[in-house]
Design a protein around this nucleic acid. Structure first.
Lengths: 339, 339
DNA sequence: GGCGTTTACTAAACCGGTTTAGGTGGGGGT
DNA sequence: ACCCCCACCTAAACCGGTTTAGTAAACGCC
């Protein structure tokens, strides 16, 4: 038995297709009794409007796109996406929208990817993540006329609105926590400086040190991977005057760094304090447990989706206020060692 | 300027809509010159067939669905999905299909989720992951007539084909590796026994011990989370006669277990050997580095997608052979301690 | 040169909804 | 009794493709 169509429902209820459509879309111009009868008939027949047909007639795809442009190696270790997607999806599905996911291996293929989503009319809007400093995508999307929301700290809202938890305060809180414990040589293992969130975390670290009147400590730039985090840690510990604390741009690197310190017999937090960022599930379960910064990624996803829906519907933005990231002090950070 | 439609192309090329469609779908019945002219015109106008319109007329959604039914807490720590999705997506997009993602918080909402995807005609097929023993979904999908591929070890292929790396050999390799090092009390921290992959890993562990003529060691059932892994480890170490080796059902629990052992001053691998499963990025970067089992999850995703495409197109299955999981011996496992 | 067969193409139906223009019947006003 | 209006509903166009039935011209053939 093929799925019933609107025509079947109309016939069964003894009305026209239009009437059925009116009933389902809550439009006026139907008597209460007819409306009820139509809805009852539809229920009996198990009919639900086909979103393919709806998409064509309302000239909307009823779906939003998310393009993830990362090598799967980096992707699989990142706890951000699963949570973010969960948030996005819950908001979208509440509004009858679906989430289309696309994964492209390199940053290069990304432009092509967006262009295709747009040309084929698969989506009504997209999320732009992992923004690079001087990223081409916002301009491309503007040219394509494809509504977009930038996920992450606001960089340049010339083209599109940005929705994101500002990571500055979280990193600042971590640095301040260390300063309060007497540390003065606080290093940073940063993410890619070409990426907006890599850069903003680094800036927050530097600014907080400066505000405290301290010289900028050593900083090693990485690609956010565990491997790079370990290498950066070795580099910092090999310095003539090694830092007493290291602020990592994410938990993954912090945990790898922790292992490097431990393997060298350096006590954490006795001789070295460490902080991460993201509050990965593992953060609380390594030894010592990792001080980290937690933010509401699911809420963030939900907020980004809400904003994109508004944008697509040309509605004015509602004020979305995301909770500040919170510093979770655990075992990996403590007083500066006596020198 | 709105996007051009097939009608615009037809007019510009001086042919009918049908001719344009023929040209694009490589159907015969057009002279080579006309075909070339049409394609050239389409290129000039920047026209790409609208997949909404195509979807309606070919009565296909041109998309596949993936429903993830997990609390985001569990989800975000799992490196499986990102890689798997990357594989799925690459295969699907090569065939003009899109991937629709849906995340539902609890296992309960899942049925509803599939039903809705089916009723609204959003997808042509779905992937079923995290299969439970005695799962209702295969039957539901059969009833809905929605093609499905089960992701994971084959349990019961009565309804749908299963595509998956069998985890048995990987766990067996880990256990054998430990036995070869003289361990005789090998415990297991298993995942949910109601889940197919939790159960199959447990069975493989037990079977390998039995094959070696050893008694089944202690086993603690968990929910795959780091928290549970830590608790299970404490429980095992508190036994009157604690195991000398623990085989964990995933890396997350293994790493948490490692931290528990370390915090108790138990040397790994000196006094306790540990193995994980999944080969998370962090596995190589904890201290000591974690012996784990790696499988080609991306290839797995690609294979699952290939099979689903075949199923939807009613093509016979091509023989898909996934590489066996490989045991990666690292620092966390070694000889049994002298007693 | 007439006839059947290809070849190359067009017109129109169709997929399953939404939306707009229009039509019908009953009630109220005068 | 006539007209108008409103409430309620229908017919048909439309979204942008695919596909089928049909047709005109070219072709082969004796």
């Amino acid at each position: 038995m093929p799925r019933p169509t609107i025509t079947d429902v109309a016939r069964a209820a003894g009305v026209s297709k239009g009437a059925v459509s009116f009933a389902f879309n809550g439009r006026e111009g139907l008597s209460a009794s007819t409306r009820a009868r139509i809805l009852a008939t539809a229920r009996d027949l198990g009919w639900t409007p086909s979103s393919r047909a709806r998409a064509l007639s309302v000239s909307r795809a009823l779906a939003m796109g998310l393009v993830i442009a990362r090598p799967p190696e980096t992707l699989r270790a990142d706890p951000f996406f699963p949570s973010f997607i969960a948030g996005v999806e819950s908001e979208l599905s509440d509004h009858g929208y679906a989430l289309l996911l696309q994964v492209v291996p390199q940053h290069e293929g990304e432009q092509q990817s967006y262009r295709r989503l747009s040309d084929e009319g698969r989506v009504d809007g997209v999320f732009v993540t992992d923004l690079y400093v001087d990223d081409q995508r916002p301009a491309l999307l503007a040219e394509l006329g494809l509504p977009a929301v930038i996920v992450g700290p606001a960089l340049d809202e010339a083209y599109w609105p940005a929705v994101g938890v500002d990571d500055g305060p979280g990193i600042a809180a971590a640095v301040e926590h260390l300063l309060a414990h007497g540390h003065t040589r606080v290093a940073h293992v940063s993410g890619l400086p070409e990426m907006v969130h890599g850069r903003s975390r680094r800036i927050a670290w530097a600014a907080t040190l400066e505000a405290a009147g301290l010289p900028e400590g050593p900083c090693v730039e990485t690609d956010f991977s565990a491997e790079a985090g370990a290498a950066a840690t070795r580099e910092l510990l090999d310095l003539a005057d090694p830092p007493t604390a290291i602020v990592y741009a994410n938990d993954l690197m912090a945990i790898a760094g922790l292992a490097v310190a431990t393997s060298r017999g350096i006590d954490v937090p006795g001789r070295l304090s460490i902080t991460g960022y993201e509050d990965t599930e593992l953060a609380a379960h390594v030894q010592p447990s990792l001080t980290s910064v937690s933010s509401d990624v699911i809420g963030w996803g939900r907020a980004a989706a809400k904003r994109l829906l508004e944008l697509v519907d040309q509605r004015p933005p509602t004020d979305i206020r995301l909770p500040q990231p919170r510093l979770l002090v655990r075992g990996s950070s403590g007083p500066v060692p006596p020198s």
